[in-house]
Amino acid sequence: MEIKLLKTFIAVAELRHFSRAADALHMSQPALSKQIGALEASVGGKLFERGRHGAELTLFGERFLPDAQSLVGDADDMLARARDASSGRVGHLRIGICLSVLTLVPRVIAEFRRENPGVAITLSDLSSAEQARRLLAGKLDAGFLRLPAAAGLSSFKVIDEGLALAMPAQSRYKRLPANLDVLNDIGFIALSRARGPGLAAQIDRWCSERRFVPNVTQHAEDVQSVLTSVAAGVGVAFIPSRAQHLLRDATVLPLPGKQAKWRVGLAWPSAREHAVTARFVSHVRGALSRQAND
């Protein structure tokens, strides 16, 4: 049964007049009469009695009207939901994040949620390597990770990041010592390489350039544990510089050199079309643009 026939029927039923209904629907009266005739043939009964003063519903028509209104309403709701889904206004978004964006991304996501209340969001704190793996496997929709992104992912830069040295507040070193070996007397706390392979590789490159081998006396499975240990005076640690906002009672020294720099960006699968992801990517671009202009 065609929805347009039901809408024509409802218009005539509400206006009680074929000519006025035809005007309201922007169609000719013969075309409207033809549609009503087609609907009557389809349902097997007469819907209207036409007279000098208009059109009145038959008993059959009166009984059919609530069902027609319900069916048209359901069709309109279904179409509205489909349009919202295709525009990315409803759905589920799985986002990967890293430590470096914790001062920026929660605010951006909160703004996105206010503008798109029909989108549910799941956040996962993951290494860049794990984010890339999940993005390519279809287990994440977007992720804030270390650039360049893996093949098969589209991306753009969000922030510049740098390596820093975190030291206990009571340490006598307030600047990077010329002889790095003195830091080994204190000992290094390191994030497990499996939990942060990108950060570990960055540290390796920076240290290799200076022919320095850190004396790692303690490993941790998360960055928060690394930072807590530094603050407690257990040792020193290489950390992303933007993690310093999580540190209390510690000194953070930005490290020099090209090997201490990298970029963090937003990445998403190139081949998989996802309306909600596209809307989120556009929102992040806009937020960065507004931030740059402030």
Rank of each mutant, 00 (worst) to 15 (best):
I3W: 07
T8N: 11
A11W: 03
H17Q: 03
R20C: 01
M27V: 14
Q29H: 09
Q35V: 14
G37I: 11
G51K: 03
G51N: 11
R52A: 10
E56F: 09
L71H: 02
D76G: 04
M78H: 07
M78V: 13
R81P: 08
S86C: 10
S86G: 07
G88S: 06
I95T: 00
S100Y: 04
L104H: 01
L104F: 06
E111F: 00
G118P: 14
A120V: 15
I121R: 03
T122M: 02
T122D: 01
L123F: 13
S124E: 11
L126K: 01
A129P: 13
Q131L: 10
A132L: 09
A132E: 07
K139P: 07
D141W: 11
R146S: 04
R146D: 06
P148I: 01
D160Y: 01
M167P: 10
P168Q: 06
A169P: 09
S171C: 06
R172M: 11
R175E: 13
L176C: 03
L176N: 05
P177D: 06
N184I: 05
F188P: 08
A194K: 05
G198A: 04
L199D: 08
S208Y: 06
N215T: 04
N215W: 03
N215Y: 01
Q218R: 14
E221H: 12
S225P: 10
A231P: 06
V236N: 03
V236P: 00
A237L: 08
A237H: 00
A237Y: 01
Q244N: 14
R248M: 15
R248F: 13
R248P: 12
P256Y: 00
G257Y: 07
K258A: 12
G265H: 01
R272P: 03
H274N: 14
T277S: 02
A278K: 02
F280A: 03
V281Y: 00
V284S: 02
L288F: 04
R290A: 14
R290Q: 11
N293M: 13
